[in-house]
C-alpha cells in the first residue's frame, strides 16, 4: 500500500573502491510496517541499513522519506534513529542520561530532558534502573535502554542492526515479542536487520531477503517461506528441498514429504529427533531429500539409517524456481 509517508530506496548503490556492497537496490518500505532485512553476512543488508541511517554515504541513487530526499542529510535530521548491534550505550553516562543525550545536544534544559527520558524509560519498563551505568545492566536491560534512547528522538523510522544477536537464545524470544508489541503500539516503521530466518518469520510484516548485494525476494513472511522464488531463498529460509526434476528446478517443503512405501525409493541417511517433528534425511539416487515427519506418525513405523524407504508428495506442492 503506497502512501506519501513511505520510506523508499531508489536505485541505491554502494561501492567500496572496486567492490559493490549494494547494487542498484530499489524498494518501498510501507509506513508503519515491521520489515526484516534478512540475509547471510556480507549480503549488503547492514550497509543498506546504515545508508538509510546516514552513517554510510550512498554512491548512487537516493533515499526518500515522507516525500523528501534525505540521502544527503545528517543522520539526526532524517527522521530515522538507529539501534546499534552492540547498543553503543555511552559507558560514562547513567541510563537516564543516555536516554536524554539527544535532548541535551539540542540544548533542552535538564528538568525537561529528564522528564522526557523518564517517559521513555517507563515505556520500556526501565524506570527503576535509571541511575545505573550501562555496565551494571544485563544484555536485555541494555537493549531496552538502547531502544528508549533511539525512540526519544521521535523517529519516523527505527533502524535496528541485529538487535537480538547479543542476547542468549531464551531471552531473544522474549525480547522479540516485546519489539513487535512496541512497534504495534507506536505505529512507526521498524527496519530490523537479521541473519536469523526464524526471527524474521516471527516478527516481520514484510521480509526482504538480500543476497550478494541485491534483493532476492520481498514479501510477507508467509509468501517468502511458502513461495520462494529462487534456490537461494528456498535454501536460506530452510525447511525446503531443492530438486531437479526433468531439467526444471523445484522447491518442495520438507513437511510436505511423506514416508510412503509406494513412493520414490530412497535410503535413509540420518534421523534427527526435533520434538514436534522428526527430520529424516534420505538419498534418492544422488538427490538428498529432507522429510519433516510429524513425531507421532514417525513412531508408528520408525526408520533407522540404512533402511529403505519410499518418498512421496503431492505434485501440486512442487514450487517452480526461477533461478
Amino acid at each position: 500500500m503506497r502512501s506519501g509517508q513511505d520510506l523508499e530506496l531508489v536505485h541505491v548503490t554502494k561501492r567500496y573502491g572496486g567492490t559493490v556492497a549494494v547494487r542498484d537496490v530499489s524498494h518501498v518500505f510501507a509506513n508503519g510496517s515491521y520489515v526484516c532485512l534478512l540475509g547471510p553476512s556480507g549480503c549488503g543488508k547492514s550497509t543498506t541499513l546504515r545508508m538509510i541511517a546516514g552513517h554510510e554515504s550512498i554512491s548512487e541513487g537516493s533515499i526518500v522519506l515522507d516525500g523528501h530526499d534525505v540521502s544527503r542529510l545528517e543522520p539526526a535530521r532524517r527522521g530515522t534513529a538507529m539501534m546499534f548491534q552492540s547498543y553503543a550505550l555511552f559507558p560514562h553516562l547513567s541510563v537516564r542520561d543516555n536516554v536524554a543525550f539527544s535532548l541535551r545536544m539540542k540544548g533542552v534544559d535538564k528538568a525537561a530532558r529528564h522528564r522526557a527520558a523518564d517517559e521513555m524509560l517507563e515505556l520500556v519498563d526501565m524506570t527503576h534502573l535509571a541511575e545505573r551505568l550501562p555496565a551494571q545492566l544485563s544484555g536485555g536491560q541494555q537493549q531496552r535502554v538502547a531502544l528508549a534512547r533511539a525512540l526519544v528522538t521521535k523517529p519516523r523510522v527505527l533502524l535496528l542492526d541485529e538487535p537480538l544477536s547479543a542476547l542468549d537464545p531464551f531471552l531473544r524470544i522474549r525480547v522479540r515479542g516485546e519489539l513487535k508489541r512496541l512497534q504495534r503500539e507506536l505505529g512507526i516503521t521498524f527496519i530490523h536487520v537479521t541473519h536469523g530466518q526464524d526471527e524474521a518469520l516471527a516478527l516481520a510484516d514484510e521480509v526482504v531477503v538480500m543476497n550478494d548485494a541485491v534483493i532476492e525476494q520481498a514479501g510477507t513472511a508467509r509468501e517468502v517461506f511458502a513461495a520462494p522464488r529462487t534456490e537461494f531463498v528456498a535454501r536460506f529460509m530452510g525447511g525446503h528441498n531443492v530438486m531437479d526434476l526433468d531439467g526444471t528446478r523445484f522447491a518442495l517443503r520438507a513437511d510436505d514429504v511423506r514416508l510412503d512405501e509406494a513412493g520414490l525409493p530412497a535410503v535413509v541417511r540420518g534421523v534427527e529427533y526435533q520434538g514436534a517433528h522428526v527430520a529424516v534425511t534420505a538419498m534418492a539416487g544422488a538427490q538428498e531429500v529432507l522429510a519433516l515427519v510429524p513425531e507421532a506418525r514417525f513412531f508408528e513405523n520408525p526408520k533407522n539409517p540404512g533402511d529403505a524407504v519410499g518418498l512421496s508428495w503431492d505434485a501440486s506442492r512442487l514450487h517452480r524456481l526461477t533461478a
Partner: peptide, 27 residues
Amino acid sequence: FDKSYEEAARDQGASAWQTIRFVVLPI
C-alpha cells in the same frame, strides 16, 4: 575505541565537536 559510540552520538544529533566533548573525551 568502538566507533559505534561516535555513530550513536551523531545519530542522536551531536555535532562533531559535541561528539568529541560529550562522548569521546569522557570515555
